[in-house]
Design a protein around this nucleic acid. Structure first.
Length: 429
RNA sequence: GGAGGUGUGGCCGAGUGGUCGAAGGCAACGGUCUUGAAAACCGUCGAGCGAAAGCUCCGUAGGUUCGAAUCCUACCGCCUCCGCCA
């Protein structure tokens, strides 16, 4: 959420930012409501002040034994009380309208975010590793997995539906190894505290990070308490862990690392990536989340991105880093780097991590504040997060990049300690 | 699911419908003392809006009242007991 005062004072700036994102949102209703609130409040506060003074007097009169005088003033104040209530109701309504509008407005973007309408305008920042050249026909992970008997798309669909998969044997183990490996790396070497958060969150957490109210269609919503949702990413429970708190300077920065499953309805992507593990309703992710002092968020963003990159480097998977353009960047993000891993079968780089700096956008929604100095005014923290990494897509990348001509898959060295002696996934005889 | 209790400032904790934005304590900060520190003592010390006057905020949302942290209703969280359960 943007600061309402900022919007009020810089409407043109916000309009320009909206245009850069390709948004057609109008600020008119919001600006009108804001000035209306100002007027109503001025009026109301006057009434409240008079009522408060009058009420105080009534009390004093009763105490002084001037009962009939008090009685008279009392009935006089009754009318005033009604006016106050009415005024309060009107302010409340305007306040609700303001919040509704404000919650629809996406974040501003950093000055160095490339301008553009869609992903074609994203800018490659750097690449790492050399895509391997194969002297045989490469297979995609779907075929590899099926032939090895470890990825079962049909049976996944049988028990749930499309975009669900069952992993068997070495693939299930590899998935677990990846989770373990990533958590160990981030907690052991990058200074993150491991968190196991709830996999179900309420609507207020989702509002805090920005999924609600705009993106309800992307979520799986539960029926019983119908304000419960399956998490689409650990970002939601973890960022909201400290919602509403006022942290001391000593508690900041917070760096959390969480392994969770993620559930996405994928409402808008019916025809896309229907094959294989790339786009599933359920996948797993190790997520990095940081809450930092405002002046540190830019550096933290670079560091967090490097932490995610480190996973790919240790797994020796070629990738590139892309800066998302204004039209492609997420609703809440101020700046975002996507990590894209090389997939030989698609002969292209595919997103495997998204590392974002949200500045105070989420903090303002979720109420994440800290006191910079003892005695100083509280300030909003800056929040950041990134996948470190999406486990399913990492598994895809390993299958495809580490495949052999005979259809077996070699286990990357970094994962061997977690694989209980398995060095290669081969077809069961 | 049933019964009862409870929700106050960074933390703990008092609070009779009326000078309560809220006692007291801890923590923090400034000072005195000390070679330095600790202890002791003195002082400051919630948040938001506003230029100020002032207004709002005691889990959340409503209500009663001239006036609500205090009364009523609903919801949420936490605790205890019973039931069920991994």
């Amino acid at each position: 959420m943007l600061d309402r005062r900022f919007v009020e004072e810089n409407p043109e700036l916000v309009r320009t930012a909206l245009a850069a994102r390709g948004s057609e949102l109008s600020l008119d209703a919001l600006l009108k409501a804001l000035s209306e609130r100002r007027d109503l409040l001025a009026e109301l506060e006057l009434l409240q002040a008079r009522r408060n003074a009058g009420s105080k007097e009534v009390g004093a009169m009763f105490k002084a034994g001037r009962g009939d005088e008090a009685q008279a003033l009392r009935s006089e104040l009754a009318e005033l009380g009604k006016q106050v209530s009415a005024g309060e109701a009107r302010v409340r309504d305007v306040e609700v309208a303001i919040d509704q509008e404000l919650l629809q407005i996406p974040n501003l973007v950093a000055a160095d975010v490339p301008l553009g309408r869609d992903e074609s305008a994203n800018v490659e920042i750097r690449t790492w590793g050399e895509p391997r050249s194969f002297e045989f026909e490469v297979r995609d992970h779907h075929d590899l997995g099926e032939q090895l008997g470890v990825l079962d798309f049909e049976r996944g669909a049988r028990v749930a539906g499309a975009r669900f998969t069952a992993l068997f044997g070495a693939a299930a183990r590899l998935n677990r190894a990846l989770v373990q490996f990533m958590l160990d790396l981030h907690t052991g070497e990058h200074g993150y505290t491991e968190v196991l958060p709830p996999f179900i969150v309420n609507d207020s957490a989702l509002t805090g990070t920005g999924q609600l109210p705009k993106f309800a269609d992307d979520l799986f919503r539960l029926h019983k308490p119908d304000n419960y949702y399956l998490i689409p990413t650990a970002e939601v429970p973890v960022t909201n862990l400290h919602a509403g708190e006022l942290l001391s300077a000593a508690q900041v920065p917070l760096r959390y690392c969480a392994y969770t499953p993620c559930f996405r309805a994928e409402a808008g992507s019916y025809g896309r990536d229907t094959r294989g593990l790339i786009r599933q309703h359920q996948f797993e992710k190790v997520e990095l989340v940081q809450l930092v002092r405002p002046e540190d968020s830019e550096a933290a963003h670079e560091a967090l991105t490097a932490h995610a990159e480190r996973v790919l480097q240790l797994l020796e998977l070629p990738y590139r880093v892309v800066s998302l353009c204004s039209g492609d960047i997420g609703f809440s993000a101020w700046k975002c780097y996507d990590l894209e891993v090389w997939l030989p079968a698609q002969e292209t780089y595919r997103e495997i991590s998204s590392c974002s700096n949200f500045r105070d956008f989420q903090s303002r929604r979720a109420g994440l504040r800290f006191r910079p100095e003892p005695g100083a005014r509280p300030q909003f923290l800056h929040t950041l997060n990134g996948s470190g990494l999406a486990v399913g897509r990492t598994l895809v990348a390993i299958f495809e990049n580490y495949q052999s001509e005979d259809g077996s898959v070699v286990i990357p060295n970094a994962l061997r300690p977690y694989m209980g002696g398995i060095e290669r996934i081969s077809a069961a005889k």
